[in-house]
Design a protein around this nucleic acid. Structure first.
Lengths: 155, 155
DNA sequence: CTGCCTGCAAACTCTTTGCACGAAT
DNA sequence: ATTCGTGCAAAGAGTTTGCAGGCAG
């Protein structure tokens, strides 16, 4: 999905809900789609402020659910306290996250059997699956060779 | 794994680290293994206090990592802010969580292919897998029939 | 004028930590 | 004596919310 298609989708979503396309929302949208990796709310705030310095933290947090709700952004929770976001791309939900145990870097990889697998598992319980996520913790190459990741932040 | 085997394992783990088996740690252990479902730190505190009212929140939070570290407890993060715990059972890591979108009830189900699948996915990236989790969001039976889960808490 | 949108700051939730006292070795 | 363990309260991180003013329709 191109940036333009995503913007269109976002604007349609807002219009459907009787919400307005404001400068701040657009700045946050553009900031989100300028990211090259997974990003946090805080990183998004920083970037959005470079585009429009009137953007506040509150507005970022209020806009993120609008963007995930319109399916232009996907939320990724790796259980590290903060949530990550990324452009929803091609709408493919069959994606697994592989997270490095040391530096928390997130890799994404196509996992074509996952959806079928999630469905199988849910239906065994009589539940109707809505979404599924395969999350793998792993040691990245740098960690294995040097015992430490270069871009590790914590500790 | 029986409760007794788990207690043994826990005590051995503590001994190996030069840590002591205190009344509070035992109370927290017993509280954990008295639970019938996934539980939060707060629920564990409540229950542990009924056994030994000198148990504090801090000690619960300090003991939880000891119990997960000794592999008698498993941590489950469904991305809802708080973490859940449950006895690690038979040591089987090939378990998927199915979480109801409305009431957040957690179902667990054996997912025998998951480990293989996580490994396949990691190795494609040149990473060494450590653990994997398949998490499925789904609508539970009650939600589908009545539009609302009986044990729903939020909102 | 009605209702959406905003920034600010305070509030909130869950978890972690500094401190001083107490207990085990 | 030394090390570990504790409760308490404060701090911390990330996120949400109440409020008063601003702006669009």
């Amino acid at each position: 999905m191109s940036v333009d298609a995503a913007r269109e989708k976002f604007q349609t979503y807002l219009a459907d809900k009787g919400l307005r396309v404001t400068d701040q929302r657009l700045a946050i949208f553009n900031a989100a789609f300028a990211q090259k990796e997974h990003f946090t709310a805080e990183q998004l705030l920083d970037c959005a402020r470079k585009i429009d310095d009137s953007v506040s933290r509150a507005t970022v947090y209020r806009t993120l659910p609008l963007m995930t709700g319109s399916h232009i952004l996907r939320e990724v929770d790796i259980g590290s306290g903060e949530k990550f976001y990324l452009p929803a791309g091609n709408g493919n939900t069959q994606v697994a996250q592989v997270v490095c145990v040391d530096c928390d870097k997130i890799f994404e990889i196509s996992a074509p059997f996952m959806e079928w697998y999630g469905s199988t598992v849910s239906l065994k319980l009589g539940l109707k699956p809505v979404s599924q996520r395969l999350q793998v913790s792993a040691q990245c190459i740098a960690f294995r060779s040097s015992g430490r990741c270069p871009n590790r932040l914590k500790k």
